[in-house]
Lab assay of single mutants.
Amino acid sequence: EETVVIALYDYQTNDPQELALRRNEEYCLLDSSEIHWWRVQDRNGHEGYVPSSYLVEKS
């Protein structure tokens, strides 16, 4: 079962390993094994790492 997370803030990045976030957008959580950086996928299928503190699990 996939976990959906919501971005609390915008996040901009130039790092190809990371993914930009848009506030209030939903993302699919792929990997939360790292404490500070979670791997997520956006609705267009793009994947990357984002700061975990910018996300909240959708209830």
Rank of each mutant, 00 (worst) to 15 (best):
E1R: 03
E1L: 14
E1T: 06
E2D: 12
E2N: 06
E2C: 05
E2T: 14
E2S: 08
T3E: 12
T3L: 11
T3N: 13
T3W: 03
V4Q: 06
V5H: 07
V5W: 10
V5P: 01
I6E: 06
I6D: 01
I6A: 06
I6S: 04
A7W: 00
A7F: 01
A7I: 00
A7H: 01
A7R: 00
L8N: 08
L8I: 15
L8Y: 03
Y9K: 15
Y9P: 01
Y9N: 12
Y9C: 09
D10W: 00
D10P: 03
D10A: 04
D10F: 01
D10N: 07
Y11M: 03
Y11Q: 01
Y11T: 04
Q12I: 11
Q12D: 07
T13R: 08
N14L: 09
N14P: 07
N14S: 11
D15G: 15
D15R: 14
P16F: 04
P16T: 12
Q17F: 08
Q17R: 15
Q17K: 15
Q17S: 11
E18F: 09
E18W: 04
L19G: 01
A20Y: 05
A20C: 13
A20H: 12
L21D: 00
R22Y: 06
R22T: 14
R22V: 15
R22Q: 09
R23H: 11
R23Y: 09
N24H: 06
N24F: 06
N24P: 01
E25G: 07
E25R: 07
E25Q: 09
E26S: 09
Y27M: 00
Y27F: 04
L29E: 00
L29P: 00
L29Q: 00
L29H: 02
D31H: 04
D31P: 02
S32T: 08
S32Y: 10
S32W: 08
S32F: 06
S33Q: 13
S33F: 04
S33T: 12
E34T: 15
E34P: 09
E34L: 13
E34N: 09
I35F: 09
I35W: 06
I35M: 14
I35K: 15
I35R: 15
I35V: 13
H36W: 10
H36R: 11
H36K: 15
H36E: 13
W37L: 13
W37S: 15
W37D: 03
W37T: 15
W37E: 06
W38R: 04
W38T: 05
W38K: 04
R39V: 07
R39C: 07
V40G: 00
V40S: 02
V40H: 02
V40M: 02
V40K: 00
V40R: 01
Q41F: 04
Q41G: 11
Q41A: 13
D42C: 05
D42V: 01
R43H: 11
R43S: 13
N44D: 13
N44Y: 10
G45R: 06
G45I: 02
G45C: 05
H46K: 12
H46D: 07
E47A: 07
E47I: 09
E47Y: 06
G48M: 02
G48C: 02
Y49L: 15
Y49V: 15
Y49F: 11
V50D: 02
V50M: 01
V50Y: 00
P51F: 03
P51I: 01
P51G: 01
S53A: 07
S53I: 13
L55C: 08
L55Y: 00
V56T: 09
V56L: 15
E57Y: 09
K58M: 07
K58R: 12
K58N: 07
S59G: 15
S59T: 13
S59L: 05
